[in-house]
Design a protein around this nucleic acid. Structure first.
Lengths: 267, 267
DNA sequence: AAGTGGTCTAGACCACCAT
DNA sequence: TGGTGGTCTAGACCACTTA
């Protein structure tokens, strides 16, 4: 149950999360123990407990109310039919689909090495520089749900893996895994652009929808901690099977005016 | 410059953000001062500085590298043409469009009171219960960019405002503002579902695209801190003008394996 | 008034990276 | 080895809600 090399806060986060998911605490929006109680139970400082709770709050799992307590968000789709989380809890589409209760299957359409071309600028490499590209379709209970193309600069692959790069890329569950194992790179964050597009003839065939059907398009660039772009992805989601859910809270919001207060700004 | 009623951390966050946006620090991915330096400069503890930096990191404005320093993310679209942030920094579409460098204009198509109908379940009110609904189109530099329908249960509106509810709803810059002023409710977080849909004839006319054109659909429910649903929104975005950008970092990710490490889990 | 979460401090030690 | 960010502590006080 306890993980080595994980911070105390992280361990507590996961422990509480498991308790919530299994319904041991906070059923139907019930309250968690107070921060003081938790800090005693886990034998850590209150700051550490708060750290753990903050992560759960950020993920939308719990809601904190000053002066009242911390409550489980009953609408957090722990077991929802729709796919949520999206790179929060799940790092691969396989996990996403599985956690949505579907049987997940990945079909690799093609793995090839070709010049970066128009992706070069996004990966900050020369256009003629070779990249490793894989094209997949993910099935959720046998229904095509996601089409994706993942691209990694070949120059990142370690010399010892370069011969079998295509095979390893194909075998990996996700580009993150491949990058970690074969490129010694860890994706620190991603920048995404989300659009709606119409399926072309080919995508329509692959995702079993008519050409012109609206698809959710997510274009992503993954960066390491030192801001080097290390992978590119173009994903298309068939709307019927997959729904994106997201819990949003203000992060940098400037005005948190109290009710009726009009001016709270001074020079 | 300094805001009353704002926490020290929040003040520092905003100060650093302004410095970054104006290019006074961290140009082209440069480093910020170290946490110790900042804590001395602002005369606060290092924990408070870390609090402030964490918010900037969460917003994708800076990147922190252990053992190295904190750096400005040069790709954070502070002044990008595309609309980003999305309820992080901007709480209204007007602000979103303006911060994207466009001239923002809102056209109200209709304000009316009608039974909740199919929205009732989402707002957790009876289907016959009346709701206040407003339909708007937002223009970015005279081009239709966003169509939105906002719905608030009429029962939430304070008695003293109920006569002019429709007018106030129409005048408010955002449903958040209206809820705060006229309902004494503050939206604590929102749950969104993102899909791609095809424009129907009416939406096509309003957003100046052909019927069947793909549109990004964002359906949102806003909740107060005590988990009461207080507003519903159905938004459609015309893809050409508005692009969603998002910086994503793992929140609850379980495996942060070090390179080459395979098993880091013990029982 | 009592209990909750929110903020802040001063200090400690660790893991990581550069040199 | 020195400096950086990452984690953690023990304690304090504040703001808010509820009774």
């Amino acid at each position: 149950m306890v993980r080595r090399n994980a911070s105390l806060a992280q361990q507590i986060t996961l422990e509480l999360l498991a308790d919530i998911k299994d319904g041991r605490i906070g059923r139907d929006g019930g309250a968690l123990a107070s921060e003081n109680e938790l800090s005693q139970r886990f034998q850590v400082s209150r700051a550490t407990v708060r750290d753990a709770l903050s992560k759960l709050e950020l993920a939308g799992v719990v809601v904190r109310r000053q002066g009242v307590g911390t409550f489980v968000n009953p609408r957090a789709s722990h077991q929802a039919a729709a796919i949520q989380g999206w790179a929060d809890e799940a790092n691969s589409f396989m996990e996403m689909i599985r956690s949505a209760g579907h049987q997940a299957e990945a079909v690799v359409l093609e793995v090839q090495v070709h010049p970066a071309g128009h992706i070069a600028a996004l990966l900050e490499i020369p256009a003629a520089s070779p990249v490793l590209a894989i094209e997949k379709v993910f099935l959720a209970s046998a229904t095509p749900a996601i089409h994706c193309i993942n691209v990694v600069p070949l120059s990142l692959v370690e010399a010892s893996f370069i011969e079998q790069a295509a095979a390893l890329f194909e075998a990996a569950e996700s580009p993150y895994q491949f990058l970690a194992r074969c490129c010694h790179r860890h994706v620190h964050h991603q920048q995404s652009e989300i659009r709606a597009t119409a399926a072309d003839e080919r995508l329509g065939r692959l995702l079993r929808c008519t050409a012109g059907a609206p698809l959710l398009q997510v274009e992503e660039i993954g960066y390491t901690a030192d801001l080097q772009p290390v992978f590119y992805a173009m994903n298309h989601f068939s709307g019927d099977v997959v729904t994106f859910r997201q819990v949003r809270q203000p992060v940098l919001s400037i005005d948190r005016l109290s009710p009726n207060a009009t001016a709270a700004t001074s020079e």
